[in-house]
Write a protein that binds this DNA or RNA. Sequence first.
RNA 1: CGGGGCGUAGCGCAGCGGGUAGCGCGCAGCGUUCGGGACGCUGAGGUCGGAGGUUCAAAUCCUCUCGCCCCGACCA
Length: 584
Amino acid sequence: MRFSRLFGKTLRQAPAEAESISHQLLTRAGMIAQEAAGIYSYLPLGWRVLRKIENIIREELDKAGGQELLLPVLQPFELWQQSGRDVSFGESLFTLTDRKQRTLALGPTHEEVIADLVRRYIQSYRDLPLLLYQIQTKLRDEPRPRGGLLRVREFFMKDLYSLDVDEAGLDESYRKTSQAYRNIYARVGLPTLMIEADSGAIGGKESHEFMVLTEGGEDEVIYCSGCGYAANAEKAQSAKTDTAAVSSQGRESRKGEPMNMPCLEEVATPGAQTILEVAKHIGVPTSQTLKAVFYSADGEFIFVVIRGDLEVNETKLRNALKCSDLRLATEGEVIEAGLVPGFASPIGVQRIKVVADDSITSGSSFIVGANKPEYHFRNANYPRDFQVDFIADLALARPGDSCPHCRCELSSARGIEVGHIFKLGTFISERLGASFLDSDGRSRPVVMGSYGIGLGRLLAAIVEQSHDDKGIIWPLSVAPYQVYLCPLHMDKSAVLLAAEKVYQQLQEEDIEVLFDDRDDSPGVKFNDADLLGIPLRLTLSPRTLERQSVEAKWRTKKEAQLLPVENLAAEVKKLLDETVTFES
RNA sequence: CGGGGCGUAGCGCAGCGGGUAGCGCGCAGCGUUCGGGACGCUGAGGUCGGAGGUUCAAAUCCUCUCGCCCCGACCA
């Protein structure tokens, strides 16, 4: 490709609205152009990168036994009603009405369509297992697009669906696919971490995300450098150290052993409303108190009890309650429920759903509100003094907490989710009636798995994590072109002739080359070469030609080397081949 | 949806105690330059996001509206 003919311009300054590094660099390099919030055009250079990523994904999935197909973007709304996900996707689902007044959804994902195909084409266990995938545009009306390509409304996505006869089959598909994912990330040069993820209210048992750790990421990853435990903060667990062990009062009084347990005792705590104030006023650590937090879950008032040193993880709470709408209750709602804000207590509450974090069992003789202004109780013990509807892990794991597996200290980092896989189970297949006959002639629902990679986000993640102050640094495997051919002194005809000849030769060797045939100063050309991030730059000038050579410089390196013009293409090919081997 | 910010030339910005728009980069032409964003001369390019209002007069003041960005909510 000749630079002078290339559609798209490099910009010296990024548009003001581009905040993230990838958005800035991709825009400055003329690879993408924003059309509206969360809607982008891919210009020729960006599209080349996207297609390279696409092909790598395709190769690895095919290798894993996947079969590619293409599914409709326009989907019957009834499919979404049948699965029930018209509700769970809610406003994020784009819908439209056709001329016959039929409602259609613009596919945000394709499990329903797959299940619909399965129920029509799969009758027997002999037809399974299957790995089906598609790579195509998906649409979601995101509440807030952000970060350039990182969170958009229209996006190119690979979705793979595994179809199995049972859980064991699903496990095997899951294993195969996650291995394919590792291969994909390795080939696009992206270090990723496979972490435990929240599978949501609808998802099945197990779910993992592939994260690229980088400052600009929108997710928080909690990880343990001791044992390798890593999870999304939404899902992460931490060890809740048993405070009874360190509490002088409760040393002997473990749960379920009411003997030795001191009686409930009222204590005046004037003005002390927050946990910190209460703990300070009474002179105990915050872990010796119980905190009351109130929520409204799909309209129902919920009383959450958690140890005072911990915070509620709302994702866990939402999953535990199996609700879709969850928000903190207002002070008015708390009072209406007959509670005293700041001094609320689970002791003696009636007709209110009370749920507790399991931390209330790792400790005893807590300080807790008296549900009476300016008073708290001391020596509150579960279950002696109060009951709860259920106990679950509802606590937010925080950096500095202990790892649930090895007790080392947990750390946290920001990450970009570049892949999400999960075991769907039979949720959708049951609802849509996607079943098969097993070898005993019994009808059973197909066990599904779902595995996604957002290609645009992956592309942006590569830039986020591989760039310098000059521009993008593409790994050779996904670079829009492998070689940047950069002649200087275009007015000297010898240079021009030699450059044209090299350009021809490189193309004949099937080397992807961007030929900077513009009559610009060296500074402009070098800076554009760096901005575009083409891996290998070949510079031709009167100086190099004097020595019958061409200067070769890697984008990743500072030094350059001279290559003889004679047989240059073969030499370059050798360099590139060595690098591919090295990278993979 | 809540909070904050911003819409003036392709990009970055100034002008906003009202008087009919300017700078840098980029772009076009000519010439001189040429190993890390060269220089000179000439030139093209703007419904000042949109609508309404106030005024003799609005980019500038007021009201409404649309769009974009950031934080939060949300994101099976």
